[in-house]
Amino acid sequence: MTQPPSSRPKAVSTSTAVPTWLTAYIEAALDGIIVLDASTGKVTDANPAALTLLGHESATLRAAHFSELLPWGTANPRTQISRRFRLDGQVAEAQVFRRADDSPVECDVTATSVSISGRELVVLHLRDASGRVDAQREQIEHERNQMLTELDETIAKRTEEFVGHVSHELRTPLAVILSSSSMLERYYLRLNETKRDEHFRRIHTQVHYLTEFIDKLRLLSRLDASLIPVRRELIDAREVVQELISEFANSPRLPHFHLSYNEGVDRVTFDATLWRRALSQLIDNAVKYGPIGGAVTIQLRRRIDGLLEATITDHGPGLPDDYLSVAFKPFKRGNNSRETQGAGIGLVIARRCAQMLNGTVTFDQDPVRGTVFTLLVPVD
């Protein structure tokens, strides 16, 4: 609200070069206006609104240097106006000025050069931005708190889901271990050797599964946290695949492996450990979900675009439709996997390892060959 003329501070005027009409305009303006001498940087005129905004008496501003209106250390009497304000008439938002009591006040500022009667002046147009800035800060704080709340809720939800998935995966093997160990404890002497071996084998299988499951969880958490360094080395990719084939050859599902490759795969430079981990998960997936005693075909190809391509074909029934869109999401499994023990994180690990190598993992459905997974990584 405009103050009555009798209560408004009296305008400062030390310039005889400013026309009467301009002085009248400056004094009547609702926003603060300060006129500076362009050569000296000193105040020549300031209207009542500027005096009120900055808390000055007219006497304190008379011939004061503009640096006295700015925060300590941001300007001095030798500072040129053009180094502190843009003289293009554009609004500079939330610029900090210093009140007479040294408290800060934020203003939207427009600085314009004018020439009057041969004298170069700079007109500062000040509009109090404190209310707007405070409102913006409150809005930012509100949005920040809202984001933190949503983040907390998301973390809580994902933690609950994670605990639920892990509990589900642990429940069945622990139940099997408890059942077989109880049978051995109570009826060991009554059981024949075949039955004893069967219970020991069940315990061993489930312990092996739990160990593998925990190892995968730990690996996945380290991949997510980027705790696994990437180390490049010269290797023979064929040897890595042959080692994996030897490991999976003793699987109870009795897979038959077929390996083929082209020239150049025997000398490639990249992180063999991450590549091996990704490939291991894809081979494991092919063995688990391909037919018992079926073929698993692995092809290595060094492409002319600098990529090493590995394809793994399981010759199985293919992925179910309900699984296609969630294949690379943690703890997701298809309807055809209920009879096969697994946690649903192998493909996630494979993709994360590939991503750390700047590579990709994709899959295709082939009505004849089954599911074909392709691992692509750049190599030297």
Rank of each mutant, 00 (worst) to 15 (best):
S179I: 05
S82D: 15
E263W: 02
I235F: 11
V114Q: 11
R303P: 01
F97H: 11
G294D: 04
L87M: 14
T269S: 09
V230N: 01
Q136C: 03
T2Q: 11
L347G: 01
R186E: 12
N358T: 07
V361S: 07
A237Q: 08
T362W: 03
L126P: 04
S115A: 02
E93L: 01
L308R: 09
E169R: 10
A59Q: 10
A11Y: 12
S325L: 04
E153H: 10
N47C: 05
L184N: 04
D322H: 07
V377P: 10
S226L: 07
S103E: 14
L274H: 01
T205N: 14
E120A: 13
R338S: 10
D101E: 04
E138Y: 00
R253N: 02
Q242I: 00
H208V: 12
R83W: 05
V163T: 14
P19E: 09
V372P: 06
Q139R: 13
T40E: 13
W275F: 15
A286K: 14
S6H: 15
T20M: 11
S260Q: 09
V163W: 06
P317C: 03
F200E: 06
T340C: 02
P48N: 02
L307S: 01
A24P: 00
F213P: 09
I116G: 00
Q365C: 08
R253W: 02
L51D: 09
A278S: 15
W275D: 05
H168Q: 14
A17R: 15
R83P: 00
M183G: 11
V96H: 10
V240P: 02
E106N: 06
S182C: 03
K332Y: 01
R78F: 14
P77S: 07
T311N: 02
D266G: 02
N192F: 00
S180R: 14
D152N: 12
L282P: 09
H142E: 08
Q80G: 15
I345A: 05
D366N: 14
G318A: 03
V122T: 10
R302G: 07
P378D: 14
V265Y: 04
F257D: 01
T269M: 08
D321L: 05
T79I: 11
A249G: 04
F328L: 12
A50V: 11
E68I: 09
S130Q: 11
S39I: 13
L124E: 03
R232S: 12
I26H: 09
A286E: 02
A29W: 02
K195A: 14
P48H: 01
D88R: 10
F270Q: 05
D215W: 06
E93V: 00
Q146A: 09
T60H: 06
A50F: 08
L51G: 02
E68R: 15
G32Y: 04
E233S: 13
R277M: 13
R144C: 03
L279C: 11
D31V: 10
A135P: 01
T60P: 00
H125R: 12
V105I: 15
T371S: 13
N76S: 15
K195S: 09
